[in-house]
Design a protein around this nucleic acid. Structure first.
Lengths: 234, 234
DNA sequence: GAGTGGTCTAGACCACGGA
DNA sequence: CCGTGGTCTAGACCACTCA
């Protein structure tokens, strides 16, 4: 089990502080030589570190040291920007697309609408310290937010809801599971197909219990740490 | 990108219903031959399917089709056994060890105790339909539960708390993140080192807000699906 | 005891990133 | 344009599982 030794050796260097957040590791061929092994075995070790969330890959760019994950509480209304700022991180949001579409199967199911109902679809990429960490797709009930697309959707949706539609989240239903980034999704996060991902699906309701919108978040799995407190129901 | 095509081909067979839950895939060498490739490339495709939670590996035993994940709500008091039964699954609990120990760093930190305080450490493996899916370590404040070890710890801890100590969970603080199974942990779940894992850390409090116990759960990542509802705080 | 998965070698070619 | 990571080949040996 050579690759375990290699993994530990790299970890040791990381803990020794020789490598800092978002710093690039040496080239694979160089590392392979250092540990007197082949690239295949070396990559086995690197994949392990990736699975543990200690390093991450950018497609064709190399391996980098993972920064501390963002603490994320799905039961808080705090939006991404405020969450990041509170934790001393530099957030950025990039609007990929925003349009009125006919609900696909997933959207219709989450929003409890008939297929082919009108919904807004908003796709955004969120960055932390210039690293893309999550791809978010929002589906929003079109009937509740006329002319939504006229607002600046690179900013907080919850702010727009509050300021222009007098609408706020009251409760949320969420689902969390792991998957992997594929195709265009991987590309958007500068990842390769198969990169481990944490998926957070949220469905939001207003004070009257009405369903407002939902979103599906694909996180680079090392970038997020879900934390929350709950009173137990029975 | 040959391995993507292979992945899709296997997925197709799964969806066509030719392969059912917990069924073993053909041998790697056989699959490699079928797709006219080498084992290395084939394993690339299999790893992708593993990352997506569609198949899983048992160490030296082969690849198997993943059953549907267990729906898990960290804000419910439902214990593992009831949760599984409710969802039509066959649960089993295996007690690995139960002893009074001096709190290690992790335990002391989670329980907010001084290092070297007395705590119970209980290790258990939980099965779903004869498949080991989660390794759980409990740390329990010794001062609150005298003679705890005299009870049958293969059964529900919450039942023991309630029936013998008149103690129930009231609130919970939890943390969820991904990691990988390593060493003895992997072995206990019949996995190989590096298998993707979902870690759930819980700290439980009673009605008076007193800290009772904590547990660290290492799930095979494809076996769990976190689902919950929350009222938003602000 | 045969077959399997776990691990490893020593290469190769290509397309892309970054200088 | 060089070096890099992404992908792939065609083997090998060993320890373990399972019949």
């Amino acid at each position: 089990m050579q690759y375990l030794k290699i993994k530990d050796a790299i970890l040791e260097q990381m803990d020794a502080g020789k490598l800092t957040s978002q710093q690039k590791l040496p080239a694979e061929r160089k590392l392979a030589e250092t540990f007197d092994t082949t690239r295949v075995t070396l990559r086995e070790a690197l994949s392990l570190l990736e699975a543990e969330g200690r390093i991450y890959r950018e497609d064709r760019r190399g391996w980098f040291i993972s920064p501390a994950p963002l603490r994320y509480d799905p039961t808080q209304t705090l939006n991404f920007t405020n969450m990041a700022l509170t934790q001393g991180r530099q957030p950025k949001t990039e609007l990929v697309s925003a349009k009125l579409v006919l609900a696909n199967k997933q959207a219709a199911s989450l929003l409890e609408l008939q297929s082919f109902s009108d919904v807004y679809q908003v796709n955004r990429i969120r960055y932390l310290d210039d690293r893309p960490v999550v791809y978010v797709t929002h589906y929003i009930r079109a009937d509740m937010f006329p002319k939504l697309l006229s607002h600046d959707l690179a900013h907080s949706l919850t702010d727009i809801y509050r300021d222009h539609y007098d609408c706020m989240y009251q409760s949320v239903r969420y689902r969390i599971f792991t998957s992997s980034l594929m195709g265009s999704l991987a590309q958007a996060l500068r990842a390769t197909s198969g990169t481990p991902a944490m998926v957070v699906e949220r469905v939001n309701y207003n004070h009257a219990g009405q369903l407002i919108d939902c979103d599906i978040e694909y996180w680079r799995h090392d970038a997020i740490n879900i934390e929350s407190v709950a009173n137990l129901s029975r």
